[in-house]
Design a protein around this nucleic acid. Structure first.
Length: 376
RNA sequence: GGGGAGAUAGCCAAGUGGCCAACGGCAACAGACUGUAAAUCUGUCCUCUUCGGAGUUCGAAGGUUCGAAUCCUUCUCUCCCCA
């Protein structure tokens, strides 16, 4: 994997780069649509590729391990072969499920014992098992197994958890050394900075993560309910410590505003369920602001969802029609909204990249943030 | 013409003397959602409200009762069966 910086903004820490993987290159900053169970929900692969033009999508170790299971994925030759997506894939390790399934798991130094949300069966996720599973899934970028701490989190717990995440990282690295790639192409491990919203812990964690000298670095444990100012402060602090010549991935972020602010702080990669989940729930992100398309005020508004027309859906369907689909609980509603939102997110990061290269990112960003956060 | 059943909020529907401004469901209207246990969840949903309450409701009118959606009388309407 190779990361090269193409341009940096003179008034912020924003940078434009290119990340080369075995399945193609990624122009950064990038937003990565989340495809937990091997599918970006409600979106066809061909739309993801031809219309949204996503460079890379995510998968999730925990979900794919439970269904369809690693045996199936190994038989077919990995997730790329299974879901027909031939561009880069990143898999999350299940660390987020340690957080979100907190009442269905137990953490020890060895790992986390999960109770399946599907059938209640118990499974051990350790750094070793998670690396083995990610080998079988075959993503281009694989994530270290970490504990994503909740917010708020007391100092003592945050410190112990962070230290364990560091030890788990070293076990991940060791496991990968004894279990090589299965499908003949390179997989790259990203370690994850933790430490909750505590500056000292985050500094310590970022230094530790940087010292492992891996292909890229991630910031986890944010966007879990803390105020946005805390998220920005921690991201800024961590970015100043993480090496400039490696991609920085802010996990689970975020709103269009969060992404623009993150880019300004030096983040290169983002992922979030928001554009797809909220799309299925009727929330549309546009270049003019946020729309709840179910609201009565759109009933007879036949204008396009977004005048910027990021994908074909903005040209083909009006607000009134999309509202009609949502009110009627039609399948097409979530599909159109998901294509729109992802199209907008990808448009947003590409515009950001363009302005970084033009070196007018900061002024563009200030104006854009004001627009994208307002409610229409 | 004879016999039977029924009328409850926008719709469907429970309730058959006080725990009823009235269970549920649908529709409607808002809100939430950040490394997806989510095409999910929450709230409002007779009127007014300073959110403490106040006022008017269960086809219509009258009556019994301390108290009626619930019991009685008459009326109006709907549906089913037999001629």
């Amino acid at each position: 994997m190779q990361f090269t910086l193409a341009a940096t903004d003179s008034k912020s820490s924003a940078r434009a780069g290119e990340l080369k993987t075995a399945h193609g290159s990624i122009q950064t900053p990038i937003f990565m649509p989340v495809g937990t169970a091997g599918t970006v929900k409600a979106v066809h692969q061909r739309e993801l590729k031809n219309d949204i033009n996503a460079d890379i999508i995510l998968g999730n170790t925990y979900h794919l391990y439970l269904r369809p299971g690693v045996d199936t994925l190994q038989k077919v030759g990995g997730l790329h072969k299974f879901n027909g997506w031939d561009r880069p894939i990143l898999t999350d390790s299940g660390g987020y499920q340690v957080f979100s399934l907190s009442d269905r798991r137990k953490i020890t130094e060895k790992g986390a014992v999960f109770q399946s949300h599907i059938d209640g069966s118990k499974h051990l996720f350790s750094p070793e098992t998670v690396m083995d599973i990610q080998r079988k899934i075959g993503a281009d970028i694989i994530m270290a197994f970490d504990e994503c701490t909740p917010w708020p989190c007391d100092f003592t717990y945050a410190r112990k958890s962070m230290e364990m995440t560091h030890r788990w990282l070293d076990r991940c690295i060791a496991q990968l050394e004894i279990s090589p790639e299965l499908y003949g192409y390179e997989q790259n491990l990203f370690p994850i900075v933790q430490g909750s919203t505590n500056d000292d812990l985050r500094k310590e964690s970022a230094e530790y993560i940087a010292s492992r000298n891996l292909a890229g670095n991630a910031i986890g444990g944010l966007s879990v309910g803390e105020p946005a100012e805390d998220m920005y402060r921690i991201a800024d602090l961590v970015c100043r410590i993480l090496p400039k010549d490696k991609p920085r991935y802010l996990m689970g972020v975020g709103t269009p505003e969060n992404i623009l602010e993150g880019i300004a702080l030096g983040i290169d990669m983002f992922d979030c369920v928001m554009p797809t989940r909220n799309a299925r729930n009727g929330m549309l992100f546009t270049s003019e602001g946020i729309i709840n398309i179910r609201n009565e005020k759109w009933k007879n508004d036949f204008s396009p969802v977004d005048p910027m027309a990021h994908t074909y859906v903005d040209g083909d369907y009006s607000k009134a029609y999309l509202r009609h689909l949502f009110i009627g609980s039609e399948y097409l509603a979530g599909m159109i909204a998901s294509v729109h939102n992802l199209g907008f997110y990808l448009w947003l990061v590409r515009e950001a990249r363009k302005h970084i290269i033009q070196d007018d990112f900061s002024t563009w960003k200030e104006a854009m943030v004001k627009k994208v956060k307002q409610r229409l």
